[in-house]
Amino acid sequence: MIQKTVIQISDVSFSYPGKQALFTNISITLKKGCFYLINGPSGGGKSSLLRLINRLEDPTRGQILFNGNPIASYHPPLLRRHILYIQQTPSVIDGRIRENLLLPFTFISNKDLAKPNDKRLLTLLKNFRLDGIRLDDHAQNLSVGQLQRLCFIRGLLLSPELILLDEPTSALDDESSRIVESKAEELCLTSDKTVLVISHRKFKPEKIVPKLLHVANGRVKEREWNPV
C-alpha cells in the first residue's frame, strides 16, 4: 500500500535572526498514519523542526508542503488546528479545567467544530488517568505532569491530522508516561493520524514500528528503528 505524503520538506534552511544556521538544505517526507520518533542532542533543532512544520517559524529557504500545498497558502490558525503542536512546557490560562479544555472553541477559526460536553470531557480525563479531577477545579492547582496530560487532551479535541509532541512525558512518572505514549500510538493505529514525538526518554512503542528521525548538526536523517 502506498502511503500518502502529509508533509514534504524540500531543501529547507533555517536560522533564528542573528544566529547561526540551524538547518541547511534539509528534505524529509512524512507519511500519513506513520509514527515518528525524533531524537538528537539538545539545541540540535528538534523543537525548531516541529515549529517549522506548524509554521510558528518560517524557513529562511526552501518549502514545506502540507497535503501537497505550501503551508504558507493556508490560513495560519486553520493550518495549526490541523497540524497540532503541543509544547514541552504545558501552558494553561488562569481558569477552571473546563475553561481550559474548551479554550480552543473560543477561537474564530474553530467555530465550525462541535463543542464537547462535560460527559465527553470527563471520559477523556479518565482515559488519561485524571479521574480524580473535577471540571470546576482550577487548572493552576494541577501538577506539571497532570497539566501535560490536560494539554494533550485539549489538543486532541481539535481532531488534528498531524500531531507534534514536544517531550510529552518529560514531567511524567513511568506509569503516566506509558499512558500518554500508548495514547499517541493509538492515534496512529486507530485514527490514521501522523504522530511526531520528541523523546529523550527510552520510549519503546509497543504496538507499532516507528520511524526514527535524528536531528543533529543542521541535518535531519531518517534511520531504522532499533529497539535495543
Binding site: L56, P76, R81, L84, Q87, I93, I108, N110, R154, L158
Partner: peptide
C-alpha cells in the same frame, strides 16, 4: 510567550 504561542497552536489568530 508560551501562553501566546499555546493559543496560536490551538487555532487562535494573533489578535485572539
Amino acid at each position: 510567550r508560551y501562553e501566546i504561542e499555546m493559543k496560536l497552536c490551538l487555532g487562535a489568530d494573533y489578535k485572539e
